[in-house]
Write a protein that binds this DNA or RNA. Structure first.
Lengths: 222, 222
DNA sequence: TAGATTGTTAATCGATTAACAATC
DNA sequence: TAGATTGTTAATCGATTAACAATC
């Protein structure tokens, strides 16, 4: 394949499981790098430390186009940079958050998002008494201003941390105003038109997986 | 296969994706049931409403041993009960939560867990000034009492909502004290011995999936 | 050199999707 | 009855794991 052919290739889809594991490697490698433990690291070691198969680590890293050296492994410094680059963590995207209850406040306070390329620039709530106040330096606006501000600022990502009953309507508003991706922490699955990304963060689902695994273990021991 | 053979069969592993989708159906069906919209529902309708393939819905429901009637569909009331039963939501398990920052407080305040069979009975923190106070009716103990109380109460599930630097050590403590499952919300992957369940709730991973999908769409439009 | 490790191709495994007979 | 829907078996698809040659 020559360079021209490569240029016009459609971006090959990246397996979602790989995408989910990359931040895990990153966090591990970043720490290793900061502590200057070793200059080079092998998939064998990463796998051992993170409880994964070395071959899976290697396959995942290959997707980022990281290059290693046989016998030596990968340069830790280089790998950290490659993953950052691959995940687009070098430039940030603005987002709005709707719903400043416990969970919303927790997300507003989470400093880590900035590192991961997400910048929550404002929050919205239906509670008049909250409007005008700040949480972690982010001003809270009334939710009736949401559509307008999405349009004016050209915001592409909306974070939903509202109760179930309010979720779908707010999602609809957001979509109409031009939001392209919704990160949904509400306990219902919101539906959006094709082409709009909805990512449902479902604690109930996670809890089910955890408790079913636990039930299996406890049953096995009896 | 006769009844005896069936009895001694090892519990067949349930696909994790199915396990994650069941609470989604449940939430949808519960609402439908509460609103008494229809007595019977088909996979076609569920699929349409939730943006999924009917065959996938049917396959998932089959795993819970739900029984439908050709032409009619499934009884909504029955289905709600079957899923509750299958997911073990009829009896609850006690859990401890460690780390009462923003996220910890959000989880303590989330009433939904009770419905899903999880009962957080107490919280722990290293901050002396928080010790003795309550969040949403849950007393906060000093983290130095954690091991002891896990042992005394025979707690099996620990929820970790602490900063990265504290996570691994606390996980180790928990495991030593007899915890069997750790629900980890800290930003590092904690490692536990084989046989201990660790479920890592990784916001960075979810965010990566979301932003990569978004990047694909935006690129496609340019 | 010998051996650990990468990069890549092939085999396996499991989940999703399709096909279709049974049925109310 | 006709047709929508279930239940079940088969085909497809994609991710994980294995195998192995290349290499420093």
């Amino acid at each position: 394949m020559n360079i021209d052919e490569k240029t016009i290739q459609p971006t090959k889809p990246i397996p979602e499981p790989t995408l989910r594991r990359l931040p895990v490697y990153y966090q591990y490698l970043k720490k290793m790098h900061d502590e200057k433990q070793t200059e080079y690291i092998s998939c064998t070691k990463i796998g051992n430390d993170l409880n994964m198969l070395p071959i899976q680590v290697r396959k995942d890293l290959a997707i980022t186009d990281a290059v290693g050296r046989p016998k030596l492994g990968y340069s830790v410094a280089e790998l950290v940079g490659t993953i950052e680059e691959f995940l687009g963590w070098n430039n940030t995207t603005d987002a709005y958050l709707v719903g400043t209850g416990n969970l919303g406040a927790a997300l507003l306070g989470y400093q880590g998002f900035r590192e991961y390329g997400l910048n929550i620039i404002a929050a919205f709530d239906a509670d008049e008494s909250k409007v005008g106040t700040e949480i972690c330096g982010k001003t809270i606006f009334h939710v009736k201003k949401l559509s307008d501000m999405i349009r004016r600022m050209g915001i592409k990502i909306g974070i939903l941390t509202v109760p179930a009953y309010a979720a779908q309507e707010l999602a609809d508003n957001m979509v109409q105003a031009g939001i392209q991706a919704i990160w949904n922490f509400s306990p219902i699955k919101v539906i959006a038109p094709a082409g709009i990304i909805v990512q449902h963060e479902n604690l109930a689902s996670s809890l089910v997986v955890l408790s079913k695994k636990l039930a299996l273990i406890i049953k096995a021991k009896v």
